[in-house]
Design a protein around this nucleic acid. Sequence first.
DNA 1: TAAACACATGAACAAATATTCATATGTTTA
DNA 2: TAAACATATGAATATTTGTTCATGTGTTTA
Lengths: 120, 120
Amino acid sequence: MNIDEVECCEVKDTHEELVKAVHDKMPSEDKLYDLAELFKVFGDLTRIRILYVLFESELCVCDLASTLDMNQSAISHQLKVLKQAKLVKGRREGKSVIYSLSDDHVRTMIAQGMEHIEEM
Amino acid sequence: MNIDEVECCEVKDTHEELVKAVHDKMPSEDKLYDLAELFKVFGDLTRIRILYVLFESELCVCDLASTLDMNQSAISHQLKVLKQAKLVKGRREGKSVIYSLSDDHVRTMIAQGMEHIEEM
DNA sequence: TAAACACATGAACAAATATTCATATGTTTA
DNA sequence: TAAACATATGAATATTTGTTCATGTGTTTA
């Protein structure tokens, strides 16, 4: 970062005011960071596929792996990410752990994204 | 991928049926891929910050860089990603290029994400 | 038309992340 | 309680991705 970037554009006065006004309306860096992290969780094909499977039915890790034709370890690792983001939850049932969506909020977000895709 | 992952869990019949039923309801791989790619675009702090700035006002690249205290090249690279995802658009105005949101769909998606964050 | 300005872009480097492999943990069953 | 099963996890590897630097392209102005 050097002075060249800060001193930019010809019309200084109005731009500086605008920049300041916009800057003040920004949410906190923490919130923006968390938001980016949330989207990052959705931004992976494997995790999206896991979520779509869970839209239909709660399932054990093994069946998730089988449905998605991936090995169990990869699925477990991704389930951990989804769980940390509170998008899914797991409960033990005997030897298995059954995973399901945390709440319907996840559906809303994904539906919104799918809508955007289909309009493009 | 080996046979161990496919042959999983004790109760074969019901699980196999379930797995098949779920599998059939999945959207196409292409759509899932596009969806993950879309979320990936939102999943970066710099791009989220750019979008939030553009919520308030359309702006030239230079002012975006100034507002976010980043160099012009980094911003340009990220604007390219956002433009390819059709989340922002740019128009030339003299020496500058003014960027703005493509449509209000972007706001809806981000608002939904922010809601999720704040409920956690 | 040459210089200055604003932006775009390719290459290089660094950092983040997804999958695999090996193995550990927790649960049931023989 | 030992073996089998289901899942979790650390380490290693490969890939992806973000930023920087240098420079190219397009526009205006002196």
